[in-house]
Amino acid sequence: MNTIETLEQKEKKYTKEDFTSDQEVRWCPGCGDYSILAQMRRLLPDLGVKKENVVFVSGIGCSSRFPYYMDTYGLHGIHGRAPALASGIKLANPDLTVFVITGDGDALSIGGNHFIHLCRRNIDVTVLLFNNRIYGLTKGQYSPTSERGKITKSSPYGSLEEPFNPVKMALAAGATFVARSMDRDPKHLEATLLEAARHKGTSFVEIYQNCNIFNDGAFEKYTNIKTRFDNVVYLKNEQEYRFGRENDKHLFWDGHRFRVEEWKATEKPLTHTTDNLPASMEFALAELSELEDFPVPVGVFRKRQAETYDALLTKQIEEVKKSKGQGDLQKLLESGNTWHVD
């Protein structure tokens, strides 16, 4: 997209209604998905791209109905494979702004392979993972993010599996933008999604999303305004890891691991950085959501500039054309040894 188009776009600025399709939304009343949909419709006018250049791609699951509700181009795919569709869409037309809408089962179980390879390639798409730690559409089996011991229809005596930590996976797989937000913190969610969408490269946002039918209250501790500030540390670039209702605690890095300590104004505080946090700290920070007695980090873990696969492909095509010239079909067919018969 060139600058002139963007400026024109600003003149006739969209509203959230421009991104609302005529389809009736069919999630259960009270589902966390409504909030995510609302924030997406709200932020797109600020993103400054033409709506015909926006594509939402999804897999299968409750979250994956999302594209039907956006008045943009949309492709409701098959289970786990949205990253494959999205990769083809973006590589065939790099001018498009592509979102992948997925869930914990879709992205981390059946689609785990596609998810990690998308991150690794750094294709310029934005992935929203709606994590409700349960299979909702199939009516309540444990998911790859359900806690061990979870009692569900498919685990009546408790699940035996350790859950995946989606942020850790995305970091390890090499996504260049990795963040976490929550359905019940709409302002933070909107700002995080906007930042993710603006980032060039694979952007990944894990969204804590409440399934009020099959896993109600899974994130209550973090989302309830009464307990949130004691259990969540908001990650902000160049700012300290402070949290607590009175903002009285912080994360202290002892060189090996984080510790929760009382905040003392006198010390020289440790600040968060999204573009060059050492791997040990980045990983330790991501791991906090798995540990007792630690706040869950919410916000941007990583935001790193790196060449995208789509840009490299375009560049490679230009370079080969420069060295070999634009291909000529007749020459192509006649390549190799030929002979003539009169």
Binding site: A84, N113, H114
Partner: peptide
């Protein structure tokens, strides 16, 4: 692609984009 499934998926995505 990372596997056969992503191979065909990306091809469908590309066709959807006009390739």
């Amino acid at each position: 692609a990372e596997d056969e499934i992503a191979g065909v998926g990306s091809a469908i995505g590309a066709s959807y984009s006009g390739a």
